[in-house]
Design a protein around this nucleic acid. Structure first.
Lengths: 226, 226
DNA sequence: GGTCAAGTGGACGATCTCGTCCGTTTGCCA
DNA sequence: TGGCAAACGGACGAGATCGTCCACTTGACC
């Protein structure tokens, strides 16, 4: 009988509210993949079979919806990372991780994994996620470098760069899996120790955790103040 | 005294109309680079110091404006290709071309070169452009491959893939030149003959000339006809 | 200089999206 | 079973963008 004496739901939601929340998230994934991240909120609501008010009550902003919609894909990425670390072959683990994440981007038309990259520690519930992911990823890189498989001058930010680029590709060419696979193959080959060939330019200051929100919608219209 | 007896302009436009056309194109480049390709047409008009009607009369659709605005950058790319072919060192020429085009994408926030890739033969005046560019580019690739510098399994479509990916990167991170340069360096290294390491997946059907228009604005909302 | 069509610009109606408000319904607990 | 607060959904006003229309201006040719 603490503060809210009523309501039994495990997350404080009534049963129908919880069901609608799930419906909304499911619809959001479909609609965002089909019409892009800027699809009208009303479309998501209609697809989910709920009113717009219900949608806005649960997710006050579009960002909140997007983050929540793709949270489970963040989990998929985190799982892939864990598996990669568990792989006895460091290079194999690294390669598997990159391919898994890119496949996710490819199948979901680039939106989800773009947000895995762009909002790693955005929501409170995923705050630890971002830090842990970054730590684990650095471990993965160091291990593969120590094994002599991954080039020594690869910087962790290079994965963020590669993922954003791949995301751009699959967004531009939603249907072209060959292009995506081809790019991934090239990138992975250039990450191998043998590919190192002269000095690289300085790495980006980008981090897996701190990508600017500019990576959002179309082209950042909404970020310009003035 | 043919059909239109009046009007002397070399392109059939009156002097003031030609001046306004130039102003519009100049403003469009600025506005598109600053606010993205979806910036309101009225913003372009205001920036150009003309009314919206003038803008719409000259460029009935947004696409027409975009194509025209970046036509001169297509020319820059074509020039870079010519220079690349003139380079005595085939690899040097290839590398220079990629770097020049990517620098163009980087400096103009990805829009121009995205369109170099996406609309190569779109306007009637550039119809030959697309074919010639593709022919020349294939020549460049074959030559560098024959010299043993470029990997033999590189397909011409791979450049389109790489450019689209790079375009996605600079669009997502407009300010981050290091990231762009880093990606270009990795891609170029993976294009070298020494980097070849096992079989690649099948190349994309993509061609420099026939990229789908899906590569346009935000996420293809407008492409779904139904 | 005069004529007239090409050119101009701003207002305007249509369309779309957002996010809120409010009367009604429904699940949960006693 | 009854009561109440949570949840619901559709309507609605505000704001933005699109593309057109039309009355006025200006440049080219005689």
């Amino acid at each position: 009988m603490g503060e809210s004496s009523r309501i039994a739901g495990q997350d404080g939601l009534r049963a129908d509210a919880r069901r609608n929340r799930r419906r909304i998230l499911s619809a959001a994934r479909l609609v965002f993949a089909e019409h892009g991240i800027d699809a009208p909120m009303a479309t998501v609501a209609r697809r989910a079979g709920v009113g717009v008010a219900t949608l806005y009550r649960r997710f006050p902003t579009r960002d909140a919806l997007v983050r929540a919609a793709f949270a489970h894909q963040m989990d998929t990425c985190a799982r892939a990372l864990t598996e990669a670390l568990a792989d006895p072959d460091p290079w194999q683990g690294f390669q598997q991780l990159v391919e898994t994440v890119c496949e996710l981007q490819r199948e979901e038309r680039g939106f989800p994994a773009a947000f895995v990259a762009a909002y790693p520690d955005s929501t409170r519930e995923h705050a630890r996620f971002g830090e842990q992911v970054e730590r684990d990823f650095i471990t993965l890189v160091r291990r593969a470098q120590a094994a002599g498989a991954l080039r020594a001058d690869l910087h962790p930010s290079d994965l963020a760069v590669a993922l954003l680029a791949h995301c751009g590709l699959v967004t531009a060419l939603p249907g072209d899996r060959a292009a995506s696979r081809r790019l991934v193959a090239f990138l992975l080959q250039s990450f191998r120790a043998e590919a190192a060939h002269g000095a690289l330019p300085a790495p980006s200051a980008l981090s897996l955790r701190s990508l600017p929100l500019a990576a959002h919608g179309s082209q950042g219209q909404r970020s310009s103040g003035t």
